[in-house]
Amino acid sequence: MIISVASGKGGTGKTTIAVNLALSLSNIQLLDCDVEEPNAHIFLKPKIKEKIPAFIPIPEVDETKCNACGKCREVCAYHAIAVIPPADGEKGKVLIFPHLCHGCGACSLLCPQKAIKEVNKEIGLVESGDSGDIKFVHGRLNVGEIMAPPLIRQVQERIDPSRTVIIDAPPGTSCPVIAAVKKSDYCILVTEPTPFGLNDLILAVEVLKKLNIPFGVVVNRSDIGDDKVDNYCRDNGIPILMRIPFDREIALLYSRGIPMVQGKPEYKEKFRAMFNIIRKGRS
């Protein structure tokens, strides 16, 4: 079973939920798919055993074969190519903007002159190892790179189907989030009872409905803010899986990089209970 942990709003506690759920269960693999800013390792302190560079294919143009016909530009869905037509006796030229390239391969496949080949560009690293009994994998996107989804997919190639897999997703509702949650059987949406939390929760709910992934909500810092998140969940039949209060001790543990179930073991039962709700809800 694959459970992803996501949230519309950032900073609501995705990593806290993912890490502590992992530590409360057995036979777990945790994938940190927030490749722009992975932080589950700060709490799990895994021993990294393997580091594999991640690549995306980007086009390279053979200028001797290229006649600047413009087909590559036309087929590029990401507007990553410009073709300057020949003018004033100068030969036409192709400009490639690698940061916009998604590595789809359309330009090289459809070039009538067969002038484009794909070359690998390194965008980050996939690191894996162990944290106690937990199998750990995360991706690290290189500074300056913006193409998170291909790296997220490469992290997910390491999914171990013999284990319960927990995916820590990036915040928001854009492409990296879709890439991270797409394969999951269930998604835990972490929110906080504030107007911002609610606004972004609603956006995340819309995404999951489109993707047809069952989901429930964890309300973090549940004793602050107002009751609008509760009302929204009730009115829309969304289960609230767990509530975590705004607790100084939890904040203190967090600030020291200690998972809350290690400092407050009574929470293990709550995380297990949440897992059982999720598991039963599926069967």
């Binding site: 530009r73 990401y78 507007h79 990553a80 190519i81 410009a82 073709v83 400009l95 903007f97 916009l100």
Partner: peptide, 9 residues
């Protein structure tokens, strides 16, 4: 993305 590139084009 790519608005500047395509406008330049």
């Amino acid at each position: 993305g790519g608005a500047g590139i395509q406008s330049g084009q």
